[in-house]
Design a protein around this nucleic acid. Structure first.
Lengths: 335, 335
DNA sequence: GGCTCTACTGTGACCGTGCACAGCCGTACA
DNA sequence: TGTACGGCTGTGCACGGTCACAGTAGAGCC
């Protein structure tokens, strides 16, 4: 429309259909208590005048924004490097596009951003928040809880269990599966590179590993990274120094596994000949590595859709639930 | 607030400050024509009652949403794999958080999504669109132009030049710089792996390469990929078959360069000994490769902020401009 | 015929802002 | 003293919807 005509309103539709505003509104919201003829006339009028509902007017009276936020609270280098965020974001966007609900992206890196976002969200500008936050006791989570904002987290929200809903992969049993897999391959000195221990992926995957090894667990085979590629490289180097006899390593993320692989190759160890390497996530990098990485697949698509579904439940007044989804072993060439 | 109190409105602020709604509104929108005492009283009252403006009510009367959209039109595998999108997205989000403007993420993968997004955007639910679209003649761009939606594209919008604003890295001269760099290194049989030729990064970088080689340009040294890692691997394999004597390759993206590197290593060629490899983007993968990749750095942070700035200009009625930003050579170990 | 009940329709109030307009007051100037 | 004017303030209306409520019409029953 290059003409400066105003956008058609519900009144224009009503006039075109020969009914009242109320009837049009009823058709728009489910169409109950509307006669078939009126229903039909309204629908024809809508396409005829090219009507699109004004979301602001609607939100003003319903005090529902019909939008949700995707809130990132990790330092920015992780967003850059870690493909999991992108995958989740894409999954959520896709899930929401079907419901005609826009997704607002917010990044709470600094304390100032955190305050601003809390204000904005608490003011009711979004109906709920999908939270990507892994570190224990993240203050923005407390802020959101204080303001009664519906929240669903990705991964167990350490320090806020029971107070916010979450969707998580089963980190512990995934680690059990991978550790068993390495044992089955005949490995006896299995090391691990964990994520930060104040994150669920860090602590739960370590627990699964420890629980599987039982008596054989040995502190000297444990190193900790921060989910970056570089930290994986450093941790692997450290492990090789400390325990040159290790013959396998379970790395708590694919990206760190990529770093570990580089360290192993730099040290002249063959994979999987000398050392078997198992990852976690099955993110895009896993299959592209050389050798291709055996890893635990997280069901990201399902995590996305469950997060959206659960958030809608919470928005509609349900108590926040916790959903744990199974992971699966993807065998490739590194074990 | 666990109490069910309603959110404070502009009337509550007016009452608390002992002035009228109009005065509060004036303070909120610039504060002109307000006495210092009134101004001060209103500001105190705002924090006292914890007032946050209702964006929906505001949008309803101003018919401005105070939000913009980040619109992705590429097939989803690119979003997964290509880190450039994430970097841009992060940059834009950061730029906007300073302006207290939310960013809506939309993905137009299918034709249905495209129609839905066009409807939504044309209905005025966002003030403007930051467009990530590279392929020539993308239909959604035509849709947006038809509906007079303010648009700023990332990269020259082939087929719509002059009709939408854009911010782009100087692809052509970046390619010239890299090709010259390879010549300076004493290479004489320099191949190239281009992006799709209906994208600016594909065609302009090829032009810069061709222009620099002049007489020495040879069709048999050109192969085309689609910006994915795998396509880089395939193109490199093809080039090696066709021209086993090549001693350098300029790859139009880092991700394809990663694939090319894998193909070279698989073929037993040393880098940079036998073959020098130059990339484009300086995305996260460049420094992590072995050997670390020499590449042309795109100024992503600046591209983000210029896109936001330019979009605001267009929203405010300025004619859409085109901004071209310089790239810079980052020398590492692959050349 | 009067009553109730169901299925549907129209009307007016209201959501929380911005904005045009009118009004007020004090000062400067004729 | 009257008048014009600039700085500041309050009020009514509009934005485009939803929702509660009242109202209508027909069917079924006594």
């Amino acid at each position: 429309m290059s003409t400066a005509n105003k956008r058609p309103t519900i009144r224009d539709v009503a006039a075109a259909a020969g009914v009242s505003r109320g009837t049009v509104s009823r058709v728009l919201n489910g169409g109950k208590w509307v006669s078939p003829e009126a229903h039909h006339a309204v629908e024809r009028a809508i396409v005829e005048v090219g009507y699109v509902a004004n979301q602001h007017a609607r939100s003003l009276v319903t005090s529902r924004s019909n939008s949700i936020a995707f809130l990132l609270t990790e330092p920015q280098h992780l967003l850059f490097e870690d493909p999991n965020f992108s995958v989740l974001l894409r999954g959520v966007a896709e899930e929401l596009s079907g419901r005609e609900m826009p997704l607002l992206l917010m990044v709470a890196g600094t304390a100032a951003e955190r305050r601003q976002i809390t204000r904005y969200v608490a003011a009711g500008h979004v109906d709920g928040v999908l939270l990507i936050s892994s570190h224990r006791g993240n203050p923005i989570v407390a802020d959101l809880i204080d303001h009664d904002v519906p929240v669903v987290a990705c991964g167990v929200p350490l320090g806020f269990e029971g107070r916010v809903g979450y969707v998580a992969a089963d980190d512990r049993s995934g680690a059990v599966t991978m550790t068993r897999h390495l044992l089955d391959r005949g490995r006896t000195r299995i090391a691990t590179i964990t994520g930060p221990l104040d994150t669920p992926g860090g602590t739960l995957r370590l627990e699964g590993y420890r629980q599987t090894l039982g008596e054989r667990f040995d502190e000297s085979l444990v190193a900790t990274g921060d989910y970056t590629r570089e930290s994986g490289r450093l941790a692997m180097t450290e492990l090789l120094e400390r325990r040159p006899d290790l013959d396998a390593v379970f790395v708590a993320s694919d990206l760190m596994a990529a770093g570990a692989l580089a360290a192993l190759q730099a040290a002249g160890r063959s994979v999987p000949g000398d050392v078997a390497v198992g990852g976690f996530d099955d993110s895009g990098v896993a299959a592209a590595m050389h050798p291709a990485l055996t890893t635990m697949r997280q069901p990201f698509a399902r995590i996305s859709s469950e997060m959206v579904r659960l958030l809608h439940e919470v928005i509609n007044g349900e108590e926040p639930a916790g959903i744990t989804l199974p992971t699966s072993l993807v065998e490739r060439d590194s074990t």
